[in-house]
Design a protein around this nucleic acid. Structure first.
Ligand SMILES: [Mn+2]
Ligand SMILES: [Mn+2]
Ligand SMILES: [Zn+2]
Ligand SMILES: [Zn+2]
Lengths: 136, 136
DNA sequence: CTTTTACTGCAACTCGATTGCAAAGATTAC
DNA sequence: GTAATCTTTGCAATCGAGTTGCAGTAAAAG
């Protein structure tokens, strides 16, 4: 596992106090985090600073965002080597019972047969259901 | 193609003036419509009435919703015979240039290998890129 | 016809997301 | 070093999609 400093250096994002704690928090969590999740976890950091940090991270491929339909965008740290290209795309799982969203890094998206002349750039693939913990 | 009346009858949704025009509008459009899209198209129908109509339609499987990451939920009429079960799931395409979202009815979701003990209920699969018209 | 239930329009409100601005901090120029 | 410049941060205000309470209207039931 890389440290926050290493990741930011690789992705060419300047290291600041807010960026370090936001990235550290994201790395420490198993499930994807919303802006509010992060705000709640970091009591002394302003929401707008976290918001702008997330934008910066996303622009620089430090993290990727997930629209899981819960009304709040979730964020997760990109895997090592990820460049957010089509080849790096993977599915996400949203548990409709416990509200947990996370990356299925092991479930890459299969080749999708798009209509003639369409170009794939990105994807937001969210599978919904019950996680193992809630499916009992 | 079924008429609005036929669809509502099959799905056991009572026919009303607002429901008819909303469904007619959705049927007339190639791309999935947001609440605002419908509001703009139906000058004399109140937003909240359209909103509640969409909720009713979705609960009764007349339409399904698509979270395409644009900030507005889009809605599309379900295909004939669709029951919104996992077997009826399909991908959606969002054009990052012209902002058009639509169903890829011909691209069903392949079997996704979920982790042990996970249960699939629904899915929101949005592929993003350029549509044929914008990819020139 | 009267009562009950469902639908609609309007206004107000919620809440996640976003922005303007000034202060604080970091970097570069001299 | 100091001054000028650029970047980051916190605060408050704002935006906008979505949602709700309520009263009036329409439809269904009795
Ligand atoms: Mn992911
Ligand atoms: Mn669809
Ligand atoms: Zn769960
Ligand atoms: Zn397009």
């Amino acid at each position: 596992m890389q440290t926050e400093e290493e990741i930011l250096k690789i992705k060419k994002v300047k290291n600041t106090a807010v960026r370090t704690v936001v990235l550290r928090h994201l790395l420490s969590q198993e499930k994807a985090q919303s802006l509010k999740d992060i705000e709640n976890a970091l009591a002394y950091t302003d929401r707008s600073s976290i918001f702008r940090t997330l934008k910066t991270f996303e622009e620089n491929k430090v993290i990727h965002s997930i629209e899981d339909g819960s009304g709040m965008t979730k964020y997760a740290v990109c895997a090592k080597g990820c460049n957010c290209d089509p080849k790096d795309l993977h599915h996400h799982f949203y548990c409709t019972n416990c509200d947990k969203t996370f990356c299925l890094f092991d479930v890459p998206i299969p080749k999708i047969q798009l209509p003639e002349n369409f170009k794939l750039q990105q994807a937001n693939m969210v599978v919904k259901g019950l996680c193992d913990n809630c499916n009992k």
